[in-house]
């Protein structure tokens, strides 16, 4: 008989390292216990997909740890990264609420622990817990704000400004402040992935990264990028808020 294993990666919501950033952060322990009994926890290895563009949504995904890229494939087969989803974020909520197919593909950028909650249960939880609704509205609003900023950048900024803006964004979401004052970007993206995030060609991105290094704005050790001059990077990003 084909053997299966009990799930060693199973995670109780109250013990989730990202609970404070998640949509259930304001819920009481008894409610979290019930959620824990209605979810499925899985680890997705680097490159494995949680869902694919065009698939039917069954529920929402809560990211416990790790990073996921949400990307769209164009008619020419090229990938565009829409956003990076991190610990504490949710995924698939937009398609779930609109009852549409997934408009993008979610792929693990590293080994990522994700909890899945089915549509029926999440709808019940939302109707019974207004604080969960507010957290989801908060996430949707932030997503919309980020999408609007991105559209504006694509139209109004040049590649240099967009790259500086990307580094600042990654600093906010994945930056680790080091004792020497630098910021370590704790997210390993390929050059190709970074290029798609700012809407440019791979070669152009590589050229600008060299320029940023020469100007002392960033440093690179292996595949890891460090921000060394945040103030100058802000100037280069032409951020006017």
């Amino acid at each position: 008989m084909q053997k299966t294993n009990s799930n060693k990666g199973s995670l109780h919501c109250k013990d989730c390292p990202s609970r404070e950033n998640g949509i259930f952060c304001a819920m009481e322990l008894a409610s979290l216990e019930d959620i824990s009994n209605h979810k499925v926890t899985n680890v997705y290895k680097k490159g494995q997909t949680l869902f694919v563009q065009g698939n039917h949504p069954f529920g929402i995904y809560c990211v416990s740890s790790g990073n996921i890229k949400v990307s769209k494939i164009g008619s020419d087969g090229k990938e565009s990264i829409v956003r990076i989803v991190s610990a504490g974020d949710i995924l698939g909520h937009r398609s779930l609420f609109t009852d549409q197919f997934y408009s993008a593909t979610a792929t693990a950028l590293e080994d990522t622990k994700v909890c899945f909650i089915d549509k029926k249960y999440i709808m019940k939880t939302i109707s019974e817990n207004p604080e969960v609704s507010l957290e989801i509205i908060n996430k949707l609003s932030r997503d919309m704000g980020a999408a609007e900023s991105r559209i504006t950048s694509m139209h109004q900024k040049n590649v240099r400004e967009r790259l500086a803006e990307l580094f600042l964004l990654l600093k906010d979401t994945h930056g680790q402040k080091l004792d020497d004052g630098r910021w370590k970007l704790d997210l390993k993206l390929t050059r190709e992935e970074m290029a798609t995030m700012i809407g440019t060609a791979n070669e152009t991105l590589i050229r600008f990264i060299s320029e940023f290094k020469d100007a002392g704005l960033i440093e690179q050790e292996g595949k890891t990028i460090f921000i060394t001059n945040e103030a100058e990077l802000l100037e280069w990003a032409n951020v006017n808020y």
Partner: peptide
């Protein structure tokens, strides 16, 4: 596996032009 929270020993891939029904954990319970 869903009810007992057990991991599967296999990968499941649906072939093109298949019609698949699904049942979630809440409904099963």
């Amino acid at each position: 596996e869903l009810v007992n929270q057990q991991s599967s020993g296999v990968q499941a891939t649906v072939r093109p032009n298949s019609i698949i029904s699904f049942i979630d954990l809440t409904t099963v319970k």
